[in-house]
Simulated assay, not measured.
Amino acid sequence: MFKRVLLKLSGEFLAPDTGFGISPERTAALAQRIISALEGTGVELAIVIGGGNLWRGTRNGQGMDPATADYIGMLGTVMNAMALQDAMEAGGKPTRVMSAIQMQAVAEPYIRRRAIRHLEKERVVIFGGGNGAPFFTTDTTSTLRALEIGADVVLMAKNKVDGVYDADPQKFVEAKRLDNLTHLQVVEQRLAVMDATALTLCMDKGLPIVVFDIFEEGNLRRLFSGERVGTLISTPQP
């Protein structure tokens, strides 16, 4: 059973059917799913959420300086973090947003020891603003923050994808789900789990990853309770 968990969410989970913006209803439903899954488990939860529902640097920032486009995307992650915080607290769960880009009127500055203290007090901590520097994805931010706070695992939440497959299951009916993989196998087989920088860091530090469908009823609760769900990516320790 995991004691401390880093949950990586996609910004699209908050979006309406158009795929752009923030839907208060969907945000509230996601928050309630997380709160219900946590109840009674004793799991300490940190979250990193992307900003793709508001801004994608490579697409929305065409013609812009790449660093500027990335900084705009980081601001988008703070907006999503604030929206999720509002929904979590409306559901009765104390939550803190910590931003790598200082904006003290709306979020606490990211301080590692303070983040750990929030977790110890059973507050959910949402990390916004990426890692404060351009050219890094929220996958990398998830890995960095997980290692900094001493998380046991990174949970990569997906929608309608219940793990890692040997081929695209939406294109190939014969695609098989892989229940167990090593970090090196993911690299060698070029499986789309997370970006290469994040994956290499997980491999170097022996940080497990679980890829799962967060919208499959009960999945998150089962993970928090120590059950096997989705695909586990780990490196056996010598």
Rank of each mutant, 00 (worst) to 15 (best):
Y71K: 02
A175L: 05
T95P: 05
R117T: 12
V211T: 08
T137H: 08
A81T: 07
L191F: 00
L184E: 15
D195W: 11
V193H: 05
F215L: 08
I111H: 04
I35H: 02
L84G: 04
L232T: 10
T231P: 02
L30V: 06
M1H: 12
Q62M: 11
E216R: 15
G128S: 09
P169G: 01
A83F: 06
I101F: 04
P208F: 10
I126E: 05
M88Q: 07
I116G: 07
M64P: 00
I126V: 04
F127V: 08
L155Q: 06
T27W: 05
D168L: 00
F215C: 03
G42L: 07
V48R: 00
Q189M: 15
E44I: 04
Q185G: 00
D152R: 13
Y165R: 11
G129S: 04
R96N: 02
V125P: 08
F135D: 06
S234E: 13
G163T: 06
V187Q: 13
L6P: 10
M98C: 05
A151G: 02
K8W: 11
E174N: 02
A151Q: 02
A15G: 06
P109M: 00
Y165K: 10
L201M: 15
Q102R: 09
V164K: 14
Q32Y: 03
T95H: 03
S10P: 06
E25R: 15
I126D: 10
A100T: 04
V173H: 10
G61F: 09
N219E: 07
D86G: 05
V173N: 05
P94Q: 13
S234M: 15
L38A: 05
T27L: 12
N219V: 06
G11F: 01
G132I: 01
D168Y: 04
I47M: 06
G128Q: 11
K171M: 10
G91V: 07
R123E: 15
I209C: 11
A167E: 13
A133I: 03
N60P: 04
V186F: 10
K158R: 15
V161D: 00
C202M: 05
D152E: 08
R190S: 15
R221N: 03
E227V: 00
T95N: 04
L75Y: 09
A157W: 10
P238S: 10
R190N: 15
Y110V: 11
P236K: 12
R4Y: 09
R222S: 09
S10M: 07
G19N: 07
T182H: 00
P66D: 01
T27K: 09
L207P: 05
V43S: 00
V164Y: 09
T138M: 13
G50F: 05
P109N: 05
V164P: 12
I126W: 02
V210Y: 01
L54K: 08
K3S: 14
P94C: 03
F136C: 01
G206W: 11
P169K: 09
E120I: 03
T95K: 07
D152F: 03
F127E: 08
L207G: 04
D213M: 01
I111Y: 09
K121G: 02
L45Q: 12
Y110S: 07
G73Q: 13
M88A: 04
I149R: 08
N180G: 06
A198D: 05
R56I: 09
F224T: 06
G92A: 11
S99T: 08
I214R: 11
G51C: 01
V187R: 12
E216C: 14
